[in-house]
């Protein structure tokens, strides 16, 4: 039940981001659409790692029996999402810098008439 809810949210976020990328004409709106797709994929990965009634995979001296070990969420998707978020910021900043360079060259925020940018 919990996983299904998060799956729906992830799919909806990716769809909204895709819609933004395909229909907007402002470069900044397109980049916001990309970052929404990014968030959707992260939500999807967290949903894959969820285990029923799972806790965070962090222990201390008392709470480290084998039973408690097997009642945690999957740590591998968490680790992957951790690095993916950092990369996401770097890629978004790189996209923004190219966008600023492009806007200052073309003197417009829109991508109309730029055949190489929009199909």
């Amino acid at each position: 039940m919990m996983t299904n809810l998060l799956f729906i949210l992830a799919g909806a976020l990716v769809l909204v981001g895709l819609w933004g990328i395909l229909t907007r004409r402002n470069i900044f709106k397109i980049i916001i659409g990309f970052s929404l797709v990014d968030t959707g994929v992260h939500v999807f990965l967290v949903a894959i790692g969820y285990v029923k009634n799972g806790t965070a995979p962090i222990f201390d001296k008392e709470y480290s029996s084998l039973h408690s070990l097997l009642n945690t969420v999957d740590p591998i998707p968490s680790a992957l999402v951790l690095t993916a978020i950092v990369i996401g910021l770097a890629v978004t900043a790189l996209m923004l810098s190219f966008a600023v360079r492009l806007i200052l060259k073309n003197r417009t925020l829109l991508v109309d008439g730029k055949k190489e940018l929009k199909w």
Binding site: M1, M2, N4, Y50, V51, L66, L70
Partner: peptide, 25 residues
């Protein structure tokens, strides 16, 4: 979205994650 109906909450972690959990500690 057809995937949403096919899955349900997992009952335990995968065996690889189980190894990581036990050995990491």
């Amino acid at each position: 979205f057809p995937l949403v109906g096919l899955i349900s909450d997992r009952d335990s972690v995968s065996s690889l994650a189980k190894d990581y959990l036990v050995q990491g500690r």
